[in-house]
Design a protein around this nucleic acid. Sequence first.
DNA 1: CACGAGACCTGTTCGC
DNA 2: TGCGAACAGGTCTCGT
Length: 273
Amino acid sequence: MPELPEVETIARRLRTGCGGEPALTGREILTVEVRHPKPIAVPDPEEARARMRGQRFLDIARRGKFLVCRLTRDYLLIHLRMSGDVQLFPGGEPLRKHDHVVWHLDGGWDLRFHDPRRFGRIWILESPERVLGALGPEPLAPEFTPARLEAMLRSRKRLLKPLLLDQTFVAGIGNIYADEALHRARLHPLRRSDSLRPEEAARLWRGIHAALRVGIARDGASIDWVYRGGDFQNHLRAYGREGEPCPKCGARIRHITVGQRSTYYCPQCQKKR
DNA sequence: CACGAGACCTGTTCGC
DNA sequence: TGCGAACAGGTCTCGT
């Protein structure tokens, strides 16, 4: 489900609060209820519960698609994968079917991890490096420059679409934003990374930046059961728009499969050669 | 190193 | 209307 802009939106809301929900920052964990052990990757669920009890949420941030919670002693990492969600609820509100982990907090609020497909994972670690260490650069960080992207592209011989989805190449881009970035950059998803001219690499950098920044500004996309209030889904230029006109040139958006992922592009703007 | 297939899951939508 | 197939914003592992 969530890609960088969606996780960023969730992290921001937990960090500072939103609407009727208070900030998660500063809350103490009284007890942890593990209703389904599957999502707890490390350590084993019993140790995880015991370890988190009594710790406080000091800060909530994002790295790639990971939600990174700094606790008093440990780091709590959450990856939502396809269908996960984390949100605060008033304590005592009836639990939903797929609320797998519930953190009971001081002040009468609960943090819930909800995940119908159960692909999401949770880690409790002293140091987050073991899990986050392999991630590529943050695409919106100042160190991620057009020149750096160009060098990274040249050093690999991969198709652009699967490369953008590779979290060790760059962290946080998923299927939607990869297609949106390539469309903005006017680059075919099957272009080889080492075939880009510097000008094209710079276009890709701008495409990535623009797609992610607009996504964040719109609070992410809300699709299916994961409705979090964002409306980026109404501003997609390529993703999910097969047969509809390209907003730039009017040609019909085409749908292909690349690396077993649905891929949408404009055959007119995004030429292969 | 690069790539494809299969696995992990449940829920929704599509096609007959 | 009903029912199975296909598909969904992700990642890992294995084989070539």
